[in-house]
Design a protein around this nucleic acid. Structure first.
Length: 818
DNA sequence: GAAGTGGATATACC
DNA sequence: ACTGGTATATCCACTTC
């Protein structure tokens, strides 16, 4: 029986039946019912024919290709048919043979059989079935469709698939039609577990919390509780079973956790395996499956498992202040709320009321995760719609992957055949290429400045790429009529005047970003800001993508040209500003700072307009803001201004600190706080006297050993495994010791230590580095000479005050008496 | 044994 | 390995006088 429903695709999967591929798409209808679509699409790849090969010859080749059969271990695969089309490849038209095959997984093997000298390239055999399916059938994630098809009800089709999947309707698709978009909020369930041991599967799972809409629960096999949300079960087996039941009852579209790819989900699975319980969370009754890559990834059939940490890392981390990407810091920054306090103690020592505290802590984690998800969802949704890959993948993609998939899913309108992913030797060759020259950074003159204006180019690199048509497909081997010449230093390179698909697509992204930025200026919510930022990120990543060795559309010349033209344009803007009588203070990549002087804000606005009217293409210079004061300092051990280090006082009274030790987490808290206070005092008062008093107080405190150890801890992240270090800095020495103590240390571990006094006169810093709890008093000399003073030195140097004399107790030259 | 230098390492800026 | 280059600054390990 044929029926038509409204449908929004959420989760994509595929299966093989009688050697063919079928898509299994789970989503909702407009009444909120769960629906699973069964559908398929043509599976094919391309053989691009060399120029000048006759049609007769092409036909002959098609005939041979038609005969190809590949015997695999599991199945036999063969070519179904061939067609000849006119297609573009890197913007150029070719004759191309479309080769239809039985199974997507065998496309590569069949492509390997095609070795005719008339064939110039074989392409698109390296795409996943899901990607192909979305492109072919235009069933894009998180968009609404009208689906016509046959409802499978106790049908024997596909081996009785409809009886083995827990949805309200299973529909075999006949027709897909895009329809009016209606608002959609996914049904979300957040979860979090607490365990006995940190190592995956080593300890017992003590409890698991679940938070959804009007739903909260903690399931535990430990002590019973009067708390309403706590449900006590007999043992761990039952806990796992009950967890699965609760998830099923709630029926989420999305199951979300924080670091759940790396901890919660694999832990649950490992315990289930150990206790011989089936963790059948999948709608088809299957257990979560894990893919081991750089990081582990856990997939559940039919619902989307989202590990919030992965998406936050890629999309937000650069815009966040948090020093760690842990749930506590991230929730505090994005939600203004922290985790509950809870000190981990051995389970056997937890008694009475302590359990209730633990349950509350566990629940809070899920609550924070749930609310973080709500906060981030608009962006995740937006990215998924734009990139057009399943939510599961988009929430985990790296920036380059997001850019690349955006390109791949938008190539159809250019009639383009998709370029292949580079293979190993190609990647090696690209990585071996020399670095090209990057951004321009202005050498500042140290000093305290008043009334500073900041301009910045909106999405500068992106707008350069669009304005000058820089990309792999527009890159030319030689100069042609109307081509753009770019001097990249080592050579001159040329780009076509016809716009490539890459710059065109990038233009769309930049337009979208502008739209959100405008909305944000009218309605300054965090969310709109984040959204505008995420598109800015995508636009900026497009440039990095061009120079990334793993990119399908890698083009070093285009990347180098982008940087070269950006340098040229910002230098032009700088001299334009100077010509109007302003003094430039600083500039880095896409921003310019100068002194307002006696001019008015209107003058500045007019000047900006003038510069904008001369900018090429879509390039745009924007007013970032006015600042009351700003300070630039000298580079340590040099007598010139340090780049990428300055502090500003905004008109709103807020300070903005860049590059200083204050913002570096590998400096101790005391040095950072001291510096931050000093900068604040100097910027707000315009003089250094108060700040110097403050510094003296801090020094006295350090000398008297009145500083808490907590403020003296240094934090450094391991970027490799302990054994792989050639040089052992303090954090490596400490990490090695931690490892000997049986603690888990590896890539990404934040090593915390302080420097203690030593009897040995010339012991290295590393030899004096101690963990909390290790014996030793903090080294007064080290903290003064290597932390507090260096952090203050360059700032006071601006006022000709030498703070180094402070620790000897000498009087100041530059200040006189006070 | 002090001083200087280059490499390794981490982190920030845009 | 999972966007790019530019820049500061530390500590270690080595060389030099």
């Amino acid at each position: 029986m044929e029926s038509t429903i409204k449908f929004i695709p959420i989760d994509y999967d595929y299966f093989d039946f009688e050697g063919r591929n079928y898509a299994k798409v789970v989503g909702r209808d407009d009444k909120g019912k769960k629906v699973c679509l069964i559908d398929n699409c043509d599976v094919y790849f391309w053989a691009i024919v060399n120029e000048g090969v006759s049609e007769k010859k092409i036909k002959g080749i098609c005939g041979k290709i038609d005969q190809i059969v590949v015997d695999g271990k599991v199945r036999q695969s063969n070519v179904l048919k061939t067609e000849v089309h006119n297609k573009n490849f890197l913007g150029k038209e070719y004759r191309a043979i479309k080769i239809f095959v039985t199974n997507s997984k065998d496309a590569h093997n069949i492509a390997d059989e095609i070795g005719f000298k008339e064939i110039f390239k074989r392409r698109e055999y390296d795409l996943s079935y899901i990607t192909k399916y979305i492109i072919e059938r235009k069933l894009k994630p998180l968009n609404w469709y009208e689906i016509t098809g046959e409802i499978l009800n106790n049908s024997m089709e596909f081996g009785g698939i409809d009886q083995n999947i827990e949805v309200d309707t299973v529909l075999k698709v006949n027709k897909i039609k895009e329809t009016k978009q209606i608002p959609y909020s996914p049904r979300v369930l957040a979860f979090d577990i607490e365990t006995d041991a940190f190592e995956i599967g080593e300890g017992e799972i003590l409890m698991v919390s679940l938070v959804g809409e009007n739903f909260k629960k903690v399931i535990t096999c430990k002590q019973d509780s009067k708390l309403k949300y706590v449900e006590k079960v007999e043992d761990e087996e039952e806990l796992l079973e009950r967890f699965v039941e609760c998830v099923k009852e709630y029926g989420p579209d999305i199951l979300t956790g924080y670091y759940s790819d790396g901890f919660d989900l694999p832990y649950l699975r490992a315990r289930a395996d150990k206790l011989r319980v089936k963790l059948s969370l999948g709608l088809d009754g299957s257990q979560p499956k894990f893919r081991r890559g750089n990081v582990m990834t856990g997939k559940i059939n039919g619902l989307v498992h989202v590990d919030l940490l992965r998406f936050i890392r890629v999309v937000y981390s650069q815009y966040m202040q948090s020093e760690t990407m842990g749930l506590n810091d991230v929730a505090y920054e994005l939600l203004g709320e922290e985790k509950d306090d809870w000190e981990f103690i051995p389970t056997k020592d937890i008694r009475g009321k302590k359990w209730d505290e633990f349950y509350g802590y566990n629940l809070k984690d899920s609550e924070l995760t749930y609310r973080l998800f709500e906060k981030i969802w608009p962006d995740m949704q937006e990215f998924t719609r734009v990139v057009q890959e399943p939510l599961f993948d988009v929430s985990r993609y790296s920036m380059s992957n997001l850019v690349e998939n955006y390109i791949m899913h938008n190539l159809e309108e250019y009639n383009e055949i998709i370029e292949k992913k580079p293979v190993n030797d190609m990647i090696g060759a690209r990585r071996a290429e020399e670095k090209y020259e990057g951004a321009f950074v202005f050498q500042p003159i140290p000093g305290l400045y008043e009334n500073i204006v900041f301009f910045d180019f909106t999405s500068m690199y992106g707008s350069v790429i669009v304005s000058f048509n820089l990309s792999r497909e527009s890159y030319l081997n030689k100069k042609t009529k109307g081509s753009t010449e770019v001097d990249i230093g080592e050579s001159k390179v040329y780009f076509d005047k016809d716009t490539g698909f890459f710059p065109k697509m990038l233009n769309d992204i930049i337009e979208t970003r502008k739209k959100y930025k405008k909305e944000y200026s009218k309605d300054p919510t965090n969310l709109l800001k984040a959204r505008s930022n995420s598109f800015k990120l995508l636009a900026n990543a497009a440039y990095g993508y061009l120079g990334y060795f793993g990119a399908r559309y890698y083009c070093r010349e285009a990347a180098a040209s982008t940087a070269a033209l950006a340098r040229k344009e910002i230098k032009k803007a700088i001299s334009g500003i100077e010509k109007k009588g302003y003094k430039i203070v600083y500039s880095d990549t896409d921003s310019i700072a100068f002194l307002k002087g006696k001019k008015t804000k209107e003058d500045v606005g007019d000047m900006l307009k003038g510069i904008n009217s001369d900018l090429p293409g879509i390039m745009e210079l924007d007013l970032e803001g006015f600042f009351k004061r700003g300070i630039w300092v000298t580079k340590r051990g040099g007598d010139f201004g340090a780049k990428k280090k300055y502090a500003l006082l905004g008109e709103d009274g807020k300070t903005k600190i860049k590059g200083f030790e204050t913002v570096r987490r590998d400096w101790c808290g005391l040095a950072r706080e001291t510096q931050s206070k000093i900068l604040g005092m100097i910027l707000t008062n315009g003089d250094e006297k108060k700040a110097l008093e403050y510094l003296k107080k801090v020094i006295k405190k350090v000398k008297k050993r009145e500083v808490e150890l907590d403020e003296l801890m240094m934090r450094t992240k391991l970027k490799r495994n302990v054994e792989d270090y050639k040089a052992s800095g303090p954090h490596v020495v400490v990490a090695k010791r931690m490892k000997e103590m049986g603690l888990k240390v590896g890539i990404g571990t934040l090593i915390e230590y302080f420097i203690a006094e030593s009897n040995e006169k010339r012991a290295s810093v590393g030899a004096r580095a101690k963990l909390v709890g290790e014996k030793g008093d903090y080294d007064i000399d080290y903290y003064l000479k290597n932390q507090i003073l260096p952090a203050a030195e360059n700032i006071f140097e601006v006022f000709n005050v030498n703070v180094n004399e402070l620790i000897e107790g000498e009087k100041q030259k530059g200040l006189g008496d006070f």
